[in-house]
Amino acid sequence: MTWVADVTAARDAGAVFFDFLTAVDLEADGFEVVCRLWDPQARTEHLLRTRCTRTHARVPTLTGVFAGAAWHERAVADLFGIGFDGHDTVPLLLPASFEGHPLRKDFVLAAREARQWPGAKDPGESDADLAVPRRRRAKPLGTRDWSP
């Protein structure tokens, strides 16, 4: 519970303004949950971080420390698929029928499947050169790897 304890300690030490909470997908290293607090007296910012694994993507909720963290945790639950122990995260941004978590790096973005990635061209190439098949081409994030 050091996540909740650390945030509580920072708040009690003066960082009373809860700015935001979000997450970072570290791929094989799991997820980092990040929370930014602001101390309006000292005019200092506090960036607090915690980690969880992909297989057990859960961290304790901060809603007991800052009630306003609820929306942020609901958004992170939608977009990253991270659960918050002690907070029943109702979907905030995505429809209930939505499948997947679009801010996870392995999420396939449909629009990117349909469009040609501008970075596929190498220096010295134009769109016409893309018609020529080549073994190694740069690949973008957010798309499926179609290579055999």
Binding site: P118, G119, E125, S126
Partner: peptide
């Protein structure tokens, strides 16, 4: 063009 997260830079050369 490769780093742009929004794919909004088009370059031909």
């Amino acid at each position: 063009a490769r780093e742009c997260p929004d794919w909004c830079i088009e370059i031909d050369s």
